[in-house]
């Protein structure tokens, strides 16, 4: 379970402060798939980075599986798998296997366990035939599979995906969606941010809309459709932003 309480995050930009998150409170239950919707710069990545211990909230607190993200960050990290953006973050001069082995060692996995996990993930993502090739020559889809495998290497209970399908072709996007379904069946808790509303519709139990650092909606899709008398999530998203006071829309 993830418990976010009154989280505010401010950045200092030159001489003035910019507020990226404003008093955000949110609870994500075990086994739930939560979709985070918002425009670019709305605060989705800041929220995910704060959950992932990469950023310290200016005020408020976040607990992941009962562990405080600032005071007990190492415990939180053991339970989290994170994939940020379409930048896959792999070492080009290492092979896919070497990349995975390196991260496995950082997560404290033993040699045998590492071998078993890599084999399992390679089979799952169909990447056995290029496991021993250097990542430098991989296509974007191949890289994304290796990056997802790295995220799942230590079998985390909670997985955060930040716009994971941006820039991917249809086949790779579908592979990712199938993976989310499978992880959901395995009981994993998943938060993923996206600005592709169809993806959110397909995968999520619950949706959180975030705009200028504030939550503008937090609930199930059914409830949202009922409230808005529409099932067009694109239309709902835009109208919520207008009501939220977005002058640019």
């Amino acid at each position: 379970m993830i418990e976010i309480k009154e989280v505010t995050k401010q950045f200092k930009d030159k001489k003035k402060f910019v507020t990226a998150l404003k008093h955000v409170s949110l609870t994500i239950k075990e086994g739930e798939v939560l979709g985070l919707l918002g425009e670019n710069g709305a605060g989705k990545t800041t929220l995910l980075r704060s959950i992932a211990t990469l950023m310290e909230p200016t005020s408020g607190s976040i607990e992941v599986a009962g562990f405080h993200t600032v005071k007990q960050s190492a415990e939180v990290k053991k339970r989290l798998g994170v994939l940020f953006g379409s930048e896959t973050g792999l070492y080009e001069r290492l092979t896919a296997r070497e990349n995975l082995e390196y991260f496995a060692s950082l997560y404290g996995l033993g040699k045998h366990e590492t071998k078993v996990r890599i084999e399992k993930l390679a089979k799952m993502f169909g990447m056995r035939h290029y496991l021993d090739r250097k990542v430098g020559g991989f296509s974007k889809g191949m890289r994304q599979k290796v990056a997802i495998a790295r995220t799942l290497l230590h079998d985390p209970d909670i997985i955060l995906f930040d716009e994971p399908t941006t820039g991917l072709d249809i086949t790779s996007s579908n592979v990712f969606r199938q993976l989310v379904h499978q992880l959901k069946r395995e009981g994993k808790t998943i938060i993923f941010s996206s600005h592709i509303v169809e993806e959110v519709t397909m995968l999520c139990d619950r949706v959180v809309m975030i705009h200028k650092g504030e939550l503008v909606y937090n609930g199930t899709l059914e409830k949202l459709y009922e409230e808005e008398s529409s099932t067009d999530l694109n239309y709902i998203f835009m109208s919520r932003l207008v009501r939220g006071g977005n002058e640019d829309v």
């Binding site: 992932a52 211990t53 990469l54 190492a74 990290k77 053991k78 989290l80 994170v82 940020f84 953006g85 930048e87 896959t88 973050g89 792999l90 070492y91 080009e92 991260f103 950082l106 997560y107 404290g108 990056a147 790295r150």
Partner: peptide, 14 residues
């Protein structure tokens, strides 16, 4: 630049 730093910082290594 390659975003491997985020992945590294997400591991339990301090």
């Amino acid at each position: 630049e390659r975003s491997t730093m985020e992945a590294l910082l997400m591991t339990p290594v301090n």
